[in-house]
Amino acid sequence: MDELVERVDDQDRGLGMTVSRRQAVREGWLHRVAVDALYPGIGLEADNQAARERHITKHPWLHRVRLRYIWTALHVGIALTGVVLTAVIALSPAW
């Protein structure tokens, strides 16, 4: 028997479907190990939801911003700084 996983959306919210890992990988679906489906008594999904709500309350803007945008902005800022400094040095009169 193949391992069971839960299908999720891009925000890691469960879609209520438990499928085999093989099928999820083959179809290219986002998934996570369905621990709640395997061990329903431990309440992992409830803990995950409570932690997510605490995080959103504590950092209301951060859950909407994707990390890749922060890293891209950082790299673009560094590159622009290099371009500006290069232009300043190239256009400055020789000593």
Rank of each mutant, 00 (worst) to 15 (best):
D2T: 14
E3V: 15
E3K: 14
V5N: 06
V5C: 10
E6I: 07
V8T: 00
V8S: 06
D9F: 06
D9K: 01
D9T: 03
D9Y: 06
D9H: 00
Q11L: 12
G14V: 08
G14Y: 05
L15V: 03
L15F: 00
G16E: 04
M17A: 07
V19R: 00
V19Y: 04
V19N: 01
S20F: 07
S20T: 13
R21Y: 05
R21E: 10
R21P: 11
R22P: 03
R22H: 08
Q23I: 05
Q23C: 07
A24V: 13
V25K: 02
V25M: 07
R26L: 11
R26C: 04
E27N: 08
E27V: 12
E27G: 05
W29Y: 03
L30N: 07
V33P: 14
V33C: 11
V33W: 01
A34H: 05
A34T: 07
P40T: 14
P40W: 04
I42W: 00
I42H: 12
L44Y: 06
L44D: 00
L44E: 02
L44A: 06
A46W: 00
D47M: 14
N48W: 04
Q49E: 13
Q49C: 05
A50W: 07
A51R: 10
R52P: 01
E53I: 11
E53Y: 00
H55C: 12
H55T: 08
I56D: 02
I56F: 05
T57Q: 15
H59W: 15
P60N: 02
P60A: 06
W61I: 14
L62Y: 02
L62T: 08
H63F: 10
R64C: 13
V65Y: 08
R66L: 09
R68V: 12
R68E: 09
W71Q: 14
W71I: 15
W71F: 10
W71K: 12
A73T: 06
H75R: 10
H75L: 13
H75S: 12
V76D: 00
G77V: 09
G77E: 09
A79F: 12
A79E: 04
L80S: 08
L80F: 08
L80T: 11
T81V: 08
T81M: 02
G82A: 10
V83K: 11
V84L: 09
T86R: 10
A87W: 05
A87H: 02
V88C: 03
V88G: 04
V88E: 02
I89S: 10
I89V: 15
L91A: 03
S92R: 11
P93E: 00
A94P: 09
A94Q: 03
W95L: 15
W95N: 14
